[in-house]
Simulated assay, not measured.
Amino acid sequence: MTVEARHGQAVGRQQLSEDVAAYVRELIISGRARPGDFLRTEPIAKAVGVSNTPVREGLLILSGEGFVELVPRRGFVVSEFTKQDVRDLFWAQAVLAAELARRAAESITDADLERLREILADHQRALAAGDDEGTVRYGHEFHRCVNLAAGSRRLATMLTSIVRQLPNRFYNDIEGHTDDTMESHPKIIDALAARDAARAETLMREHIMSGADELVATLAKQGMWSDG
């Protein structure tokens, strides 16, 4: 087998493990898998369409993130997921994204700004059409474009590892989040276009943190916590 073939197999296997991790994260954050529940390999493998090996690897990823714990001779059990955990995810995301926005304001090109305006227009059209998938995709692409414009690859990679701990669909579940996005994204573009690093940083931090308490309330209403 060639080096390229082995690399391709490794990448494919890693993606399967990531798919498993994403699936189980959503089970946990949606409350379908509760703290103390043991996670059986077979149902997860069937739901994701993979073998048992990627399931175990995906659960090990989640163990590193604190979503599950490995109990010797018994398997993986769902860890407690608290309101503070939700707020911490938003806080960490907000700190890194705000710094990337500040750096982007200092290095962004006219082509980057034009691309951001195109994404915003696509986002608005998707929202008006009731296209939930498109709304999530363009919202993600907006932030990705800002992060790339910062020219700080390692910092952006760190942010990506945090962002994926909260599945994209939960952002759409937050009451009022879409309205905030449609108000905040144009302001962020204006700050970037003006090369106003301080304002871009502040706007990005406030935009992301605005969703923390709203998501806590949404998950509580869905029965995530017993006092919800």
Results as ranks from 00 to 15, higher is better:
Gln124Ser: 14
Gly66Val: 00
Val48Arg: 01
Arg137Leu: 15
Gly64Asn: 09
Glu99Lys: 01
Glu106Tyr: 00
Ala47Asn: 06
Gly49Ser: 11
Asn52Ile: 08
Gly49Phe: 09
Gly58Cys: 10
Ser51Tyr: 04
Ala97Ile: 02
Lys46Phe: 02
Ala105Gly: 13
Leu62Asn: 10
Ile119Gly: 05
Asp110Cys: 00
Ile61Gln: 08
Tyr138Arg: 04
Asn52Tyr: 04
Gly64Glu: 13
Ala111Gln: 13
Leu96Tyr: 09
Gly75Glu: 05
Gly75Ala: 10
Ala111Glu: 15
Glu65Arg: 00
Val86Asp: 05
Thr135Ser: 15
Glu141Cys: 02
Ala121Gly: 13
Ser63Trp: 06
Arg137Val: 13
Ile119Ser: 02
His143Asn: 15
Ser107Asn: 14
Phe81Met: 06
Ala101Trp: 02
Gln84Cys: 04
Val78Arg: 00
Thr109Gly: 11
Arg103Leu: 15
Val55Phe: 01
Gly139Trp: 00
Val86Lys: 00
Gln84Met: 12
Gln84Asp: 15
Asp110Glu: 14
Arg102Thr: 06
Gln124Met: 12
Ala97Gln: 13
Gln124Trp: 03
Thr53Gln: 14
Leu89Val: 10
Val136Gly: 11
Pro54Asn: 11
Arg103Phe: 12
Gly49Ile: 09
Thr109Cys: 04
Asp112Leu: 01
Phe142Pro: 08
Val71Ser: 12
Ala126Gly: 09
Ala47Ile: 10
His143Ala: 14
Ser107Lys: 13
Leu100Gln: 07
Ala105Lys: 03
Arg74Cys: 10
Glu65Phe: 12
Val78Trp: 03
Asp85Val: 05
His140Tyr: 11
Ala121Ile: 05
Ala126Pro: 04
Ala111Thr: 13
Val95Asn: 04
Asp110His: 01
